Each structure stands twice: as structure tokens, then as C-alpha cells.
Simulated scan of single mutants.
Amino acid sequence: MTALAQISDRRMRVDRRTKGGRHVEEIETALKEGRVGILFQPQFSCADGSLVGAEALSRWHHPQLGQIGIDSLFDSAMRAGQAARLTRHIAERALAMAAGWPDNLRLSLNITAMDLAEEDFSATILAAVKSAGFDPTRLMLEITEQALVSDIDLGAQRLAVLADAGIRIALDDFGAGFCNFRYLKRLPLHAIKLDRSMIEGVTEDQRDLAVLRGIVALADALGLSVTAEGVETEAQRFIAAREGCSVWQGFLGSGPMPSSEFARLAGA
């Protein structure tokens, strides 16, 4: 068992003794009753503005608390010992929905530290892709730097299995925290996804713009594409495109939307 898995196991045992029972019941009920919904945030080409895909984002429609975002949802799932089940549920549903999209669009899925700690993680993702009849080359898995801190070598091995099957891997939230450049060397990456903080000040601050240029130059040298997240103004979109980003997403284009709405946007 990895250090990450040991820590997670201890936390789960403690939580089960305190309030884990409530979390288990709530998560199981949410999954059974279909209260864990999937939204899709469109992603666009920086070159011509065309739609290139979407990131799947899960939401928990809690009967008392209303709509709960991904962080709180996975926190509750982890406390209940249901994180792997939740990831499998989201992956299966999102892939099934995306199977009806035009063939030129790709799907991005977020994965967590809990996912990488699961021994059968790679097999679970590959099984979900096969079951949905989804071309693995159209799938991008987004993993945050924080999720890899505990065991980068194990994470690299499990991600390599997926990359060998054609699935693309992106390092998400790049620039949000301390950047360990070992990730760029060790992981089978195809892309980096800039944290929104890397885009916010590029239209006003020359230092922010210089940082963006440096990151894009590094990515280009490593053969990685760059996605700009959190694009909210036309000026930000213009600079992201001018400086060499490949894809952008943000409220300038659209916020997260239901599957049916995205399907209409995609012409599916």
C-alpha cells in the first residue's frame, strides 16, 4: 500500500467511526437516485474559435443543501469510502453522453489522488471507455499537481497504461501552487492546463504576461499543448491565442451546461 493510500485509509476509518455512516448513506442515496449530475463546460480552439470538446463537471443535487460542487462531493465520497465508486459513476455517465457527440469533439475528465491510489484505476477507466464505445484518443484525463505529490512514480505507471491505450493526459491547474518540474519529466503528459490565475492579469500586468510566455515556451519545447482556463474577456482570449495556447475555456465562451444543451451546441 502506498503512503497516500495508507493516509487515506486511516482517514476513512476515523471518519467512519464519527460521521462516516451519514456520508455513506448520503452518497449511496445520491448515486442510486441520480442526484449526482454531469455538466459540460465547452472548450474552444484558440486558432479559429471552433468547439473542440468539453470538460465534464459533476454536481450533487443535495435535498437539503442544494447544488454542491465537485470538491465537497468528493470530500464526502472520500469520508464514506466511496471515492472510487463516484469516479467510476462520473466516468461512465460522462462517456456514455459523449459517445453521441460528433467524432471531432473530445471529453475531459478530472481524476483525483484517491483515483490514482486505487490498484485497478487504469483498468476501470479502460473498461468505461470500452463500454461506452468511445474512442480513447478523444479522452483527456486531467490530473492536478497536488494529486501526485505522495507517489509520483506510481501515478506515472498507472497513467502510462492509459496513455499507451491512446488516452491523453493533462497536468491540470498548472501554476496554482508550487510547481514540481519533475512532473513534466516523469509523467506521460500530452498537455498542461493553466490555472485561471495564470490568465487573470495578462492584459494589465507585464510580469503576468511574461510568465504566460515562459510557460507556453516550456510546453512547446516539451511537445505539450496548452489549455487556458478561466478566460472571461475577449482580451484574455486574444492574448492566450497570440501567445500560443491551443485551447481555451471559460465564461467568455460558456459556463457549465447540461448534456442536452451541450449536444445542441455541438450539433449532435
Rank of each mutant, 00 (worst) to 15 (best):
A96Q: 11
C46A: 09
A99R: 09
I68L: 14
P42R: 10
I70V: 13
A94N: 08
G81F: 08
G81V: 10
D75Q: 15
S50G: 14
W101P: 01
D75E: 15
Q67Y: 04
V52E: 08
A77P: 00
F40S: 00
I90R: 00
A96H: 07
Q82W: 07
S76I: 06
M97N: 12
G49S: 02
D103T: 13
G53S: 07
M78A: 15
A99D: 10
H62L: 08
D103H: 14
D71T: 13
S45Y: 06
L95F: 02
R59G: 08
E55M: 01
S72W: 03
A80Q: 09
P102G: 04
W60S: 04
W60F: 08
G81T: 05
L51K: 12
A91P: 05
R79S: 14
M97E: 15
A77L: 03
A96L: 05
Q64L: 15
P63T: 03
Q67R: 14
T87S: 15
G69R: 05
L95H: 08
F40R: 04
A99P: 02
G100W: 09
T87Y: 00
G53E: 12
G49P: 02
D103S: 14
A99Q: 11
L57K: 13
W60A: 00
L65Y: 05
C46L: 03
G49Y: 01
L73T: 11
R93T: 13
R88Y: 05
H62P: 00
W101S: 07
G100M: 09
A98V: 07
P102N: 09
A84T: 11
L65R: 14
G53W: 10
R88V: 02
G100A: 10
